[in-house]
Each structure stands twice: as structure tokens, then as C-alpha cells.
Amino acid sequence: MNDKRDIIVCEGVKKWFGDFQALKGITTSVKEQEVVVVIGPSGSGKSTFIRTLNRLEVHQEGTIIIDGIELSNDLKNIEKIRSEVGMVFQQFNLFPHLTVMQNITLAPIWVRKKPKAEAEDDAMKLLERVGIPEQAEKFPGQLSGGQQQRVAIARSLAMEPKIMLFDEPTSALDPEMIKEVLDVMKELALSGMTMIVVTHEMGFAKEVADRVLFFDYGLVVEEGTPEHFFTSPEHDRTKLFLSQIL
């Protein structure tokens, strides 16, 4: 793990929404193929943080460097970064008027300019990887929540990103479907993808994470390996949080 370079470097990232400061200076880095799980109470800024990484939120102070490219107002940089960073949302955000296949192949065809046949072949491989190849011609409205989220993961993977961001991917799912999505994410992690996952699923964090970040009130309160984090946390705030959820 030590010979992997830093693929995400954040220095003093601060963000305000009007007068309210959501991020109060985040300094952290993520190595290639590392799986980082971000946990914390709601309103702590964890979603805001990962959304700044692909410019869905704009940070006002500090620097973010992703794969050597600085995230600034330069549109070219933003485009390059977005092509390397995939995102999976809590609300799936699939395009309801397109079939599953069209959802997945839209960006490869029109952004990466892939030929349609090749894009569809790759899409089928991805659908097999997430376990639902038979749903290719269905519309998102005809699928269950777990299936929709898996399609969303396949859609992000279709752009061949180097980093995958997950914003509470299982929070909107029935308990029965959470497992199928977490299984896909585990397989993804084991295959070597760099992942940053905001979640409440502690089991997932214990099993798969290389590092756990605990956010509270816009700051990283504690970070460490899962073993360290869940068995011997240092800060009181962390201890309080863990006692409430475990």
C-alpha cells in the first residue's frame, strides 16, 4: 500500500453555504486503490465533502488535487476530473425515460465517442458484473431499488473512472436490498478501485475499508484503520457516536 501514490489530495478545504460553514478545513489524502469510508452524524459535512470532489459543490478555500489536476474554476480541468471520477447517488438518479441499456451507454457514446456496438457490449459486461444482465431493456421504473442502484453503479463504471464516489448508496433501500448493493461494492473494492464511500453501514466499513474518516461539524475528528477505529477510538466524540450506532 505504501508505494501507491496519492490520487486525491485535499488541503484545508473550506466551504460555506451563505453564512453557514459546512466544511471547516479538511486536510486528507487518498492513495490509489484505497477504500475510504466516511461516517458521521447527519449535517456533519460528509456528503458536501465528497460532492466537492467532482465539483457538484464548489469549495471556497483550500486546494483539491485529483490525479495531479487541480480542481478550480477552469472548465477544462473540471471536465477532465469528472471523466475520471464516477459518482453513485443516494437517490439513484437514473434517467427514467431511457432503458437501462441506454442509461449506461449514453455517456460512453456521446462523451467518450465510443461506437454504439462497442458501448453496448461493454454495458452488457458491466450488467453481468453487477448481476442483472436480464434487465437491460427494462426502464428504471420497472426495477426494484436494489436493481436500480446496481444499474447506477454500472452506469458510473461505464465511463471507466479511476475513482468512485458513493454518497450514502444504500440509505434509500429496503433492508433486503442493501446486501445486494454492498456485495457489488465489495467486489469493486476487491478488484482494486479507489473508493470513497459515505455510509452508515458499519459492517461494510469493518470488512472492506482501508481507512475510516469520522466527520463532525465540518471537520475530520478522527481517522484510522477500521480495527483502530472501531475497537479503540481516541476522541470522546467518536466514542459517543459509536456507542449510539453500534
Partner: peptide, 15 residues
């Protein structure tokens, strides 16, 4: 149209 549609499209790099 929900805001999430725009976010997903932007995250995928669509102009």
C-alpha cells in the same frame, strides 16, 4: 425535473 438528474448528467461528463 429533479435536481438529481442534472447532477447525475454532470457527474458523467455530459455537456
Amino acid at each position: 425535473i429533479p435536481k438529481g438528474q442534472y447532477e447525475a448528467a454532470r457527474a458523467m461528463g455530459l455537456s
